[in-house]
Protein backbone atom coordinates (compact mmCIF):
# COMPACT_ATOMS: atom_id res chain seq x y z
CA UNK A 1 0.00 0.00 0.00
CA UNK A 2 1.30 3.41 -0.99
CA UNK A 3 0.24 6.37 1.08
CA UNK A 4 0.22 9.81 -0.53
CA UNK A 5 1.42 12.12 2.26
CA UNK A 6 1.84 15.10 -0.03
CA UNK A 7 0.50 15.11 -3.55
CA UNK A 8 3.01 17.35 -5.35
CA UNK A 9 1.74 19.50 -8.21
CA UNK A 10 -0.33 17.41 -10.52
CA UNK A 11 0.99 13.90 -9.78
CA UNK A 12 -1.27 11.59 -11.74
CA UNK A 13 -1.90 8.05 -12.85
CA UNK A 14 -1.09 7.29 -16.48
CA UNK A 15 -0.53 4.34 -18.74
CA UNK A 16 -0.24 3.91 -22.50
CA UNK A 17 -3.51 5.81 -22.92
CA UNK A 18 -6.96 5.11 -24.22
CA UNK A 19 -6.80 4.59 -27.99
CA UNK A 20 -9.85 3.65 -30.01
CA UNK A 21 -12.28 6.33 -28.79
CA UNK A 22 -11.11 9.45 -30.55
CA UNK A 23 -14.07 9.40 -32.94
CA UNK A 24 -16.24 10.04 -29.88
CA UNK A 25 -14.16 13.03 -28.81
CA UNK A 26 -12.35 11.03 -26.11
CA UNK A 27 -8.63 11.84 -26.07
CA UNK A 28 -6.05 9.06 -26.11
CA UNK A 29 -4.00 10.70 -23.35
CA UNK A 30 -1.49 8.47 -21.60
CA UNK A 31 2.05 9.27 -20.50
CA UNK A 32 3.49 12.45 -22.04
CA UNK A 33 6.85 10.66 -22.32
CA UNK A 34 5.95 7.11 -23.37
CA UNK A 35 9.62 6.09 -23.60
CA UNK A 36 10.29 6.93 -19.97
CA UNK A 37 7.03 5.27 -18.91
CA UNK A 38 7.76 1.98 -20.65
CA UNK A 39 11.34 2.05 -19.36
CA UNK A 40 10.08 2.45 -15.78
CA UNK A 41 7.75 -0.50 -16.23
CA UNK A 42 10.44 -2.65 -17.81
CA UNK A 43 12.86 -1.93 -14.94
CA UNK A 44 10.48 -3.54 -12.42
CA UNK A 45 9.43 -6.44 -14.64
CA UNK A 46 6.06 -4.99 -15.71
CA UNK A 47 4.45 -5.30 -19.08
CA UNK A 48 4.53 -2.06 -21.08
CA UNK A 49 1.43 0.05 -20.52
CA UNK A 50 0.94 -0.87 -16.85
CA UNK A 51 -0.44 2.00 -14.73
CA UNK A 52 2.21 4.20 -13.10
CA UNK A 53 2.65 7.72 -11.74
CA UNK A 54 3.51 10.72 -13.89
CA UNK A 55 5.14 13.38 -11.76
CA UNK A 56 5.59 16.89 -13.16
CA UNK A 57 8.39 18.98 -11.58
CA UNK A 58 7.21 19.07 -7.97
CA UNK A 59 7.03 15.54 -6.67
CA UNK A 60 4.85 13.96 -3.99
CA UNK A 61 5.83 12.43 -0.66
CA UNK A 62 4.96 8.75 -0.63
CA UNK A 63 5.28 6.21 2.15
CA UNK A 64 5.25 2.47 1.68
CA UNK A 65 3.48 0.27 4.15
CA UNK A 66 5.12 -2.85 2.75
CA UNK A 67 8.39 -3.35 0.92
CA UNK A 68 8.16 -2.88 -2.83
CA UNK A 69 10.22 -2.53 -5.97
CA UNK A 70 9.88 0.65 -7.91
CA UNK A 71 11.70 2.44 -10.70
CA UNK A 72 11.98 6.15 -11.47
CA UNK A 73 12.64 7.35 -15.00
CA UNK A 74 12.13 10.52 -17.04
CA UNK A 75 12.95 13.78 -15.30
CA UNK A 76 15.48 13.83 -12.46
CA UNK A 77 13.55 15.39 -9.57
CA UNK A 78 16.26 14.57 -6.99
CA UNK A 79 14.48 11.61 -5.37
CA UNK A 80 15.40 10.60 -1.83
CA UNK A 81 14.41 7.47 0.02
CA UNK A 82 14.50 8.04 3.79
CA UNK A 83 16.75 11.02 3.23
CA UNK A 84 19.29 9.33 0.96
CA UNK A 85 19.60 10.14 -2.73
CA UNK A 86 18.56 7.31 -5.04
CA UNK A 87 19.19 6.78 -8.74
CA UNK A 88 16.69 6.92 -11.52
CA UNK A 89 16.68 4.46 -14.42
CA UNK A 90 17.54 1.58 -12.01
CA UNK A 91 15.26 -0.62 -9.92
CA UNK A 92 14.90 0.51 -6.29
CA UNK A 93 13.84 -1.65 -3.36
CA UNK A 94 11.88 0.41 -0.80
CA UNK A 95 11.59 -1.40 2.54
CA UNK A 96 8.42 -1.46 4.60
CA UNK A 97 7.88 1.89 6.32
CA UNK A 98 10.19 3.83 4.03
CA UNK A 99 9.36 7.24 2.62
CA UNK A 100 10.14 8.65 -0.83
CA UNK A 101 10.32 12.37 -1.47
CA UNK A 102 11.55 14.59 -4.25
CA UNK A 103 13.74 17.67 -4.21
CA UNK A 104 15.00 20.11 -6.80
CA UNK A 105 14.04 19.31 -10.39
CA UNK A 106 17.54 19.05 -11.82
CA UNK A 107 16.73 17.80 -15.33
CA UNK A 108 13.56 17.43 -17.44
CA UNK A 109 9.94 18.03 -16.63
CA UNK A 110 8.17 14.74 -15.88
CA UNK A 111 9.31 11.77 -13.82
CA UNK A 112 7.68 8.35 -14.00
CA UNK A 113 7.33 6.04 -11.04
CA UNK A 114 6.46 2.42 -11.76
CA UNK A 115 5.77 -0.10 -9.01
CA UNK A 116 6.50 -3.75 -9.65
CA UNK A 117 3.16 -5.34 -10.50
CA UNK A 118 1.61 -2.00 -11.39
CA UNK A 119 -0.99 0.15 -9.66
CA UNK A 120 -4.25 -1.63 -8.98
CA UNK A 121 -7.04 0.52 -10.42
CA UNK A 122 -10.14 -0.18 -12.46
CA UNK A 123 -9.96 0.13 -16.22
CA UNK A 124 -12.27 2.66 -17.82
CA UNK A 125 -12.70 2.33 -21.58
CA UNK A 126 -9.66 0.09 -21.69
CA UNK A 127 -7.25 2.29 -19.74
CA UNK A 128 -6.34 3.55 -16.28
CA UNK A 129 -4.99 6.87 -17.56
CA UNK A 130 -6.40 9.98 -15.88
CA UNK A 131 -8.65 12.09 -18.11
CA UNK A 132 -9.92 15.14 -16.23
CA UNK A 133 -11.95 16.37 -19.17
CA UNK A 134 -13.92 13.13 -19.35
CA UNK A 135 -13.77 12.67 -15.56
CA UNK A 136 -12.52 9.11 -15.94
CA UNK A 137 -9.49 6.94 -15.21
CA UNK A 138 -6.88 7.17 -12.47
CA UNK A 139 -8.52 8.12 -9.19
CA UNK A 140 -11.99 9.28 -10.27
CA UNK A 141 -10.50 11.20 -13.16
CA UNK A 142 -8.39 13.52 -10.98
CA UNK A 143 -4.80 14.08 -9.95
CA UNK A 144 -3.54 12.76 -6.61
CA UNK A 145 -4.39 14.38 -3.27
CA UNK A 146 -2.79 14.07 0.13
CA UNK A 147 -4.43 11.18 1.94
CA UNK A 148 -4.94 9.04 -1.17
CA UNK A 149 -3.96 5.41 -0.88
CA UNK A 150 -2.73 3.45 -3.89
CA UNK A 151 -2.64 -0.31 -4.04
CA UNK A 152 -0.30 -2.31 -6.19
CA UNK A 153 -0.77 -5.69 -7.82
CA UNK A 154 1.47 -8.65 -6.87
CA UNK A 155 5.11 -7.79 -7.51
CA UNK A 156 6.85 -9.20 -10.56
CA UNK A 157 10.21 -9.42 -8.79
CA UNK A 158 11.09 -11.11 -5.47
CA UNK A 159 12.42 -9.01 -2.57
CA UNK A 160 16.21 -8.63 -2.29
CA UNK A 161 18.31 -10.61 0.20
CA UNK A 162 18.03 -7.98 2.92
CA UNK A 163 14.49 -6.62 2.51
CA UNK A 164 14.76 -4.35 5.58
CA UNK A 165 17.26 -2.09 3.80
CA UNK A 166 16.88 0.11 0.70
CA UNK A 167 18.75 -1.39 -2.21
CA UNK A 168 19.51 -0.71 -5.86
CA UNK A 169 21.26 -3.15 -8.17
CA UNK A 170 24.23 -1.86 -10.15
CA UNK A 171 22.42 -2.16 -13.48
CA UNK A 172 19.76 -0.10 -15.17
CA UNK A 173 19.02 1.57 -18.48
CA UNK A 174 21.14 4.02 -20.43
CA UNK A 175 18.88 6.91 -21.28
CA UNK A 176 20.70 10.12 -22.17
CA UNK A 177 20.76 9.38 -25.89
CA UNK A 178 16.96 9.29 -26.06
CA UNK A 179 16.85 12.94 -25.15
CA UNK A 180 19.93 14.35 -26.87
CA UNK A 181 22.06 17.13 -25.48
CA UNK A 182 22.57 20.77 -26.35
CA UNK A 183 21.15 24.17 -25.62
CA UNK A 184 17.85 23.55 -27.36
CA UNK A 185 15.65 20.49 -27.66
CA UNK A 186 16.01 19.37 -31.29
CA UNK A 187 12.73 18.22 -32.80
CA UNK A 188 12.20 16.84 -36.30
CA UNK A 189 9.11 18.46 -37.73
CA UNK A 190 7.23 16.77 -40.55
CA UNK A 191 5.72 19.75 -42.34
CA UNK A 192 1.95 20.17 -42.46
CA UNK A 193 -0.24 22.02 -44.92
CA UNK A 194 0.45 25.48 -43.48
CA UNK A 195 4.26 25.23 -43.39
CA UNK A 196 4.76 26.53 -46.94
CA UNK A 197 2.44 29.46 -46.19
CA UNK A 198 4.72 30.67 -43.42
CA UNK A 199 6.86 33.71 -44.15
CA UNK A 200 10.57 32.89 -44.53
CA UNK A 201 11.50 34.73 -41.33
CA UNK A 202 8.96 32.66 -39.43
CA UNK A 203 10.29 29.40 -40.82
CA UNK A 204 13.80 30.49 -39.86
CA UNK A 205 12.71 31.37 -36.32
CA UNK A 206 11.28 27.89 -35.81
CA UNK A 207 14.40 26.25 -37.18
CA UNK A 208 17.00 28.33 -35.33
CA UNK A 209 15.71 27.82 -31.80
CA UNK A 210 14.07 31.23 -31.31
CA UNK A 211 11.02 29.68 -29.67
CA UNK A 212 10.83 28.79 -26.02
CA UNK A 213 8.25 26.88 -24.01
CA UNK A 214 5.94 29.44 -22.39
CA UNK A 215 4.64 29.32 -18.82
CA UNK A 216 1.37 27.97 -20.18
CA UNK A 217 2.50 24.45 -20.87
CA UNK A 218 0.66 21.36 -19.74
CA UNK A 219 -0.53 18.01 -20.99
CA UNK A 220 -2.96 19.67 -23.39
CA UNK A 221 -0.21 21.55 -25.14
CA UNK A 222 2.94 23.63 -24.87
CA UNK A 223 2.40 27.27 -25.79
CA UNK A 224 5.55 28.67 -27.38
CA UNK A 225 7.01 32.15 -26.96
CA UNK A 226 8.95 33.84 -29.73
CA UNK A 227 8.49 36.20 -32.67
CA UNK A 228 4.82 36.11 -33.75
CA UNK A 229 4.46 34.02 -36.91
CA UNK A 230 2.39 35.10 -39.88
CA UNK A 231 0.97 33.14 -42.76
CA UNK A 232 1.19 34.78 -46.20
CA UNK A 233 -2.53 34.26 -46.59
CA UNK A 234 -4.88 33.52 -43.76
CA UNK A 235 -6.42 30.20 -44.45
CA UNK A 236 -8.65 28.59 -41.88
CA UNK A 237 -8.24 24.90 -41.42
CA UNK A 238 -11.56 23.16 -41.41
CA UNK A 239 -11.69 21.36 -38.03
CA UNK A 240 -10.09 17.97 -38.51
CA UNK A 241 -8.13 15.36 -36.61
CA UNK A 242 -5.06 16.41 -34.65
CA UNK A 243 -2.62 14.47 -32.48
CA UNK A 244 0.12 14.91 -29.89
CA UNK A 245 3.14 16.61 -31.46
CA UNK A 246 1.09 18.72 -33.88
CA UNK A 247 2.37 22.28 -34.16
CA UNK A 248 -0.65 24.56 -34.57
CA UNK A 249 -0.71 28.27 -35.33
CA UNK A 250 -3.55 30.12 -33.58
CA UNK A 251 -4.40 33.73 -34.58
CA UNK A 252 -2.01 35.10 -31.91
CA UNK A 253 0.88 33.99 -34.14
CA UNK A 254 2.41 32.04 -31.25
CA UNK A 255 2.40 28.32 -32.00
CA UNK A 256 1.13 25.57 -29.74
CA UNK A 257 2.72 22.12 -29.65
CA UNK A 258 -0.09 19.72 -28.77
CA UNK A 259 0.50 17.41 -25.81
CA UNK A 260 -0.63 13.91 -24.84
CA UNK A 261 -4.04 15.10 -23.64
CA UNK A 262 -4.84 17.22 -26.69
CA UNK A 263 -8.32 17.33 -28.15
CA UNK A 264 -9.17 14.91 -30.92
CA UNK A 265 -9.88 17.61 -33.53
CA UNK A 266 -8.64 21.13 -34.10
CA UNK A 267 -9.11 23.97 -36.52
CA UNK A 268 -5.92 26.03 -36.34
CA UNK A 269 -3.54 26.02 -39.32
CA UNK A 270 -1.16 23.10 -38.97
CA UNK A 271 2.55 23.86 -39.36
CA UNK A 272 3.56 20.25 -38.92
CA UNK A 273 3.93 17.43 -36.48
CA UNK A 274 7.00 16.39 -34.53
CA UNK A 275 8.35 12.90 -35.31
CA UNK A 276 7.30 10.21 -32.82
CA UNK A 277 10.93 9.52 -32.00
CA UNK A 278 11.30 13.05 -30.60
CA UNK A 279 8.23 13.00 -28.38
CA UNK A 280 10.27 12.29 -25.21
CA UNK A 281 12.16 15.54 -25.84
CA UNK A 282 9.18 17.86 -25.95
CA UNK A 283 7.59 15.88 -23.13
CA UNK A 284 10.59 16.77 -20.96
CA UNK A 285 10.87 20.41 -22.09
CA UNK A 286 10.16 22.90 -19.33
CA UNK A 287 8.86 26.45 -19.47
CA UNK A 288 11.80 28.58 -20.63
CA UNK A 289 13.49 25.79 -22.62
CA UNK A 290 14.32 26.51 -26.27
CA UNK A 291 13.00 24.27 -29.04
CA UNK A 292 14.78 24.02 -32.39
CA UNK A 293 12.85 22.33 -35.16
CA UNK A 294 14.50 20.51 -38.07
CA UNK A 295 12.53 19.64 -41.15
CA UNK A 296 11.99 15.91 -41.46
CA UNK A 297 10.01 13.62 -43.71
CA UNK A 298 7.67 10.73 -43.05
CA UNK A 299 9.76 7.92 -44.54
CA UNK A 300 12.91 8.88 -42.60
CA UNK A 301 10.98 9.34 -39.36
CA UNK A 302 9.29 5.97 -39.76
CA UNK A 303 12.51 4.08 -40.39
CA UNK A 304 14.16 5.85 -37.44
CA UNK A 305 11.20 4.81 -35.29
CA UNK A 306 11.53 1.18 -36.37
CA UNK A 307 15.27 1.24 -35.67
CA UNK A 308 14.67 2.66 -32.24
CA UNK A 309 12.01 0.07 -31.51
CA UNK A 310 14.45 -2.75 -32.42
CA UNK A 311 17.05 -1.18 -30.16
CA UNK A 312 14.56 -0.99 -27.32
CA UNK A 313 13.58 -4.65 -27.74
CA UNK A 314 17.26 -5.55 -27.42
CA UNK A 315 17.69 -3.38 -24.33
CA UNK A 316 14.63 -4.95 -22.79
CA UNK A 317 15.82 -8.49 -23.50
CA UNK A 318 19.11 -7.58 -21.82
CA UNK A 319 17.19 -6.23 -18.83
CA UNK A 320 15.15 -9.43 -18.52
CA UNK A 321 18.36 -11.45 -18.28
CA UNK A 322 19.35 -9.31 -15.31
CA UNK A 323 16.30 -9.95 -13.18
CA UNK A 324 17.46 -12.61 -10.72
CA UNK A 325 14.30 -14.65 -10.34
CA UNK A 326 11.57 -13.01 -12.30
CA UNK A 327 8.20 -14.56 -11.58
Amino acid sequence: MIRVEQAGLGTRIEDAGRPGWQHLGIATGGAMDPHAARAANALVGNEPGVALLEIPLAGPVLSFERGLWLALTGADLSPELDGRAVDGWRPLWCPAGSRLRFGRPSWGCRAYLAVSGGLDLPEVLGSRATDERAGIGGLEGRTLRAGDVLKSLPARLPPPEAPERPWQPDWGLAWREIYGVGEAWRLQLIPGEAWDGLEAAGQAALLDGSFRVAARADRMGLCLDGPALRLRETRERLSAGVAPGCLQLPPSGLPILLGAACQTTGGYPLLGRVASQDRPRWAQARPGDALAFELGDVATAQSAWRREERLWQMQKAELCRRYPYQR
Binding site: P19, G20, W21, Q22, T28, L238, G241, T265, A299, W305
Partner: peptide, 22 residues
Amino acid sequence: ADRVPAYASLCLHYDPLAWDYA
Protein backbone atom coordinates in the same frame (compact mmCIF):
# COMPACT_ATOMS: atom_id res chain seq x y z
CA ALA B 1 -5.93 2.60 -33.49
CA ASP B 2 -8.37 5.36 -34.38
CA ARG B 3 -10.19 6.82 -37.33
CA VAL B 4 -11.54 10.26 -36.57
CA PRO B 5 -14.17 11.78 -38.82
CA ALA B 6 -14.52 15.55 -39.11
CA TYR B 7 -16.44 17.84 -41.49
CA ALA B 8 -14.69 16.77 -44.68
CA SER B 9 -11.92 14.40 -43.63
CA LEU B 10 -11.09 11.18 -41.93
CA CYS B 11 -7.94 11.07 -39.79
CA LEU B 12 -6.31 7.67 -39.36
CA HIS B 13 -3.97 7.09 -36.43
CA TYR B 14 -1.80 4.12 -37.34
CA ASP B 15 1.10 2.19 -35.90
CA PRO B 16 4.24 2.98 -37.92
CA LEU B 17 5.58 -0.46 -36.96
CA ALA B 18 2.63 -2.02 -38.82
CA TRP B 19 2.46 0.37 -41.79
CA ASP B 20 4.67 2.72 -43.66
CA TYR B 21 2.84 5.67 -45.14
CA ALA B 22 3.12 4.67 -48.81
